[in-house]
Design a protein around this nucleic acid. Sequence first.
DNA 1: AATAATATTTAGAATAATTCCAATTATTGC
DNA 2: GCAATAATTGGAATTATTCTAAATATTATT
Lengths: 143, 143
Amino acid sequence: MQLEPQYKELLDTALEGSGQRATKQREHVYALLLQKRDHPTADEIYARARSEMPTISLATVYNCLETLVETKLIRQVNFEREPTRYCPNLTQHAHFYCRESGEIVDIELSDQLIGELMKVLPKGFSAQHIDIAYDGKCNHCHD
Amino acid sequence: MQLEPQYKELLDTALEGSGQRATKQREHVYALLLQKRDHPTADEIYARARSEMPTISLATVYNCLETLVETKLIRQVNFEREPTRYCPNLTQHAHFYCRESGEIVDIELSDQLIGELMKVLPKGFSAQHIDIAYDGKCNHCHD
DNA sequence: AATAATATTTAGAATAATTCCAATTATTGC
DNA sequence: GCAATAATTGGAATTATTCTAAATATTATT
Ligand SMILES: [Mn+2]
Ligand SMILES: [Mn+2]
Ligand SMILES: [Zn+2]
Ligand SMILES: [Zn+2]
């Protein structure tokens, strides 16, 4: 499995911009996230990574993920106190967590809706970020 | 410090409804949460609880909080992977986390706004709960 | 190309919030 | 008051994540 050229480009410039090196571990972790966009945990990424790169360590997976988050190529996604998950979708979106299947789905959010959410803040408050997590039943799990 | 009668009533009926007993530890933890509504962590609650009840244990604080959450008298509030915080405000509200001061403020949400958020879900999805967390600068911390 | 400087990876130890456990203590119903 | 049940307690266990220090890889310099 390999990183498509446009993403390879993205990764290289992001890393260069932050004075970090492009390593095969970083490429591999990034490629895995882009390939199966199911919001895996570090452990899941570790398991997937090992099939093609058996010597990679869990610490490296954490390190790579940290680098990718810092350079804003991916974001962290948290539900309650569950293990952190990772998402390469950089658009403004919320997450829907299906209690039945455990599936996590991206919910795109319009600027308009974000605007409305900003409007309800009391005077003097300014938010740089809004985190929105739904939970319930997804389309596959309905009666 | 003590629990106001209306809340004592609330607690007793909630506990009775779930077949649990009203103990002084549960009352005390609940009273602390109602008194200073700053979304404390279990450790903070433990520290506060000990000044009036020096023999209470951290395990008991966790147990009491769990009971209060189960009986829906309080709710848990999580920011990223920080320690869980606890909130006795039962209205529909989001949380604003000030990066500068660490203050956590309740943001009331109208049914209308929640409705809009529900509307953006794809067909077949139904949410029982939406978790909304802002983060940025609060009114006290502005330049 | 060799060497030095720097960054990354690695395995395993450390950390920290929370949960579990088994013994003691408190509360309830008779 | 006594037996049955539930809650509290201190400490051990768990688990995701971070830290550490040694080994390896990459880049820059001669
Ligand atoms: Mn996502
Ligand atoms: Mn609150
Ligand atoms: Zn589902
Ligand atoms: Zn502030």
